[in-house]
Design a protein around this nucleic acid. Structure first.
Lengths: 341, 341
DNA sequence: CTGAAAGCGCTTACAG
DNA sequence: CTGAAAGCGCTTACAG
């Protein structure tokens, strides 16, 4: 303890926490002693006394996917503003792994927990009922499973609306023959896209949706080639994630099609900078930073006022950002004109 | 305390920690009580008593770069094996930010700290001297700065050797006119590449090295185009990271060159699956998992036996993994033949 | 093998 | 405004 050096005793605590006013002269002496001895308060002891670790846990499926990598950094930023640290756990779509980590936290080592992404956790959600701290679900695309105990706040993105924005945009540009390149997990985005076309009086057949099982450039190339081969009159593609969209543009080039003259491509969740593509793509952009902020606020807010927690899911709305990859539908039928056999 | 439920007192601690043998009958009673009451030990209290938080900090510049994203997951894996948690901090190449976070840890909230990546931290390294826990540096490409206090273990990759492997491979395939696409931070890789050619009696002029300031597909396209324009006889490219390499292949296609018939491309740190490219690239592959393991072991080992820490930097050797993107140098001079004006 | 005591380093009422 | 005491929930020697 630094008290020895100065003269006072646990007045040190008072000056450090600032909870109780201390006479300037005393405070100065204490601060000198602190500086001199290089005193650093023990945060573990403080946590035990206060019951708060100033640490928040975050579960994400992986940080290798750009979406989650960005989310992690946003959460970290918000946490830092509020003086909290980040305990990270990547679940790898492995419910058992998530369960183990959850068990490892169930003991006040964290003030709150954010769980992002819906894959692989569904079966283990009831476990959360035993958590001793607030848990908030975010970036949840699928519907909430029945097993989920009541009382879990959800802060997520309106993926359906994102898909709808993409569809609306293509419709507005006059596209009627379109196809979708999608990851199997992105059904909600596809549903929104489909709804937009239905509203425009156009039914999108299941055969227009091409799944790319793996989120790779190659998978995107293949899905795009398959889509254009299956429906040569296609004038626009909707790709449900960035790598798929970038691959679609390259696939079009390979087939001798110009983007956007012959083929429009709209992406979902491409970075505005278009890291992976030749030029910035028109894309549905997700308010990840907002989601991170609200998720943290709900989680930490639940600590202060457990009762006041608003349990209606918060749905944040994506926006469409225009890039170079979309344009009016060609009068002459797009891909039909030039696609090689 | 669960003791009430059973009959014993802090025998609970004995059965939970397993430190002191307990009679089976007693243990059973205690375990029943634990299960019944849903007792979970308070890890914060345990940390205060034992002096160990079972948490390790990791600083990386960002998780948005695949290299660090993978490293984070590897570190997490090794930590999990050893029963530790991961406190993550992304420094964003911002020394001031790193300093703040470091200060936030300087108080036994972490058992050890791993710092990955050299950018932006150089000036703040002396601060580490004040850390109350072992610190190990990893994935450090540049030379260690003079300001670094002695006694910091370093576990890193032999980047120079990686560049050398790439150069050696191209030389073995008969390539003599080569160019390099590099990120400005990757000077060591380029130096290794250059050394290989020097050993082969070929000097690589500075003009053969093309920098891509930003790690984007677009930047890679431009650097590759510039390289092939500047030296039309070029038969091979060395790209110092995955996105650059993937872009180089697409740039070659755009110019009407076949890979690897007209142009070979060797990457550095591409994923073996080649997520970003049309087909798996020949690439220098870095033993990240090994590095993560050794870094954690050194850090945690330093806890047990502070004196025995081996302070010689550990340099882990990359390997060359063959893909579809390299082949023998064309007899007729490669790019010269077909590049458009 | 089991119980009673002290201590980890803070914070928080509670008297002076 | 400042000091003395109790307590946060564990673990760790130390006696029985």
């Amino acid at each position: 303890m630094a008290e020895r050096a100065g003269v006072t005793k646990q007045t040190v605590s008072n000056v450090v926490t600032g909870r109780v006013p201390v006479r300037p002269a005393t405070e100065a002496r204490v601060r000198d002693a602190i500086a001199e001895l290089g005193y650093v308060p023990n945060l573990v002891a403080r946590s035990l006394a206060t019951g708060s670790t100033r640490t928040v846990g975050l579960f994400v499926p992986t940080v290798r996917a750009p979406f989650y990598a960005e989310l992690v950094e946003h959460v970290e930023d918000v946490l830092e503003e509020r003086g909290h640290r980040l305990l990270l756990c990547t679940t790898r779509l492995d419910g058992e792994r998530a369960r183990r980590h959850l068990a490892g936290l169930t003991s006040r080592s964290v003030d709150a927990l954010l769980i992002a992404g819906d894959q692989g956790l569904t079966g283990h959600l009831p476990l959360l009922a035993g958590a001793r701290f607030p848990v908030v679900l975010c970036a949840w695309e699928a519907g909430l499973p029945d097993g989920l105990p009541d009382g879990f706040p959800v802060v997520t993105l309106d993926y359906e609306h994102g898909g709808h924005l993409a569809g609306r945009h293509l419709l507005d540009l006059g596209h009627e023959r379109v196809a979708v390149l999608a990851s199997p997990a992105h059904g909600v985005r596809v549903a929104g896209f489909r709804r937009a076309f239905e509203e425009g009086g156009i039914a999108l057949p299941d055969s227009a949706v091409h799944l790319a099982a793996e989120p790779t450039f190659r998978g995107g190339l293949e899905a795009a080639a398959a889509a254009l081969r299956a429906a040569p009159g296609t004038t626009a593609l909707f790709a449900t994630h960035d790598l798929l969209a970038a691959a679609a543009v390259e696939a079009a080039r390979t087939l001798g099609l110009s983007v956007p003259e012959d083929l429009s491509v709209v992406a979902h969740d491409d970075t505005p900078e278009g890291l992976l593509s030749r030029s910035p793509l028109t894309s549905v952009v997700l308010p990840k930073r907002d989601m991170a902020r609200q998720a943290v606020e709900v989680a930490l807010g639940a600590l202060d006022a457990p009762a006041s927690a608003d349990l209606r899911p918060r749905l944040l709305r994506p926006e469409l950002v225009l890039g170079d990859s979309t344009g009016r539908a060609p009068a002459h039928g797009g891909a039909r004109r030039t696609v090689r056999p």
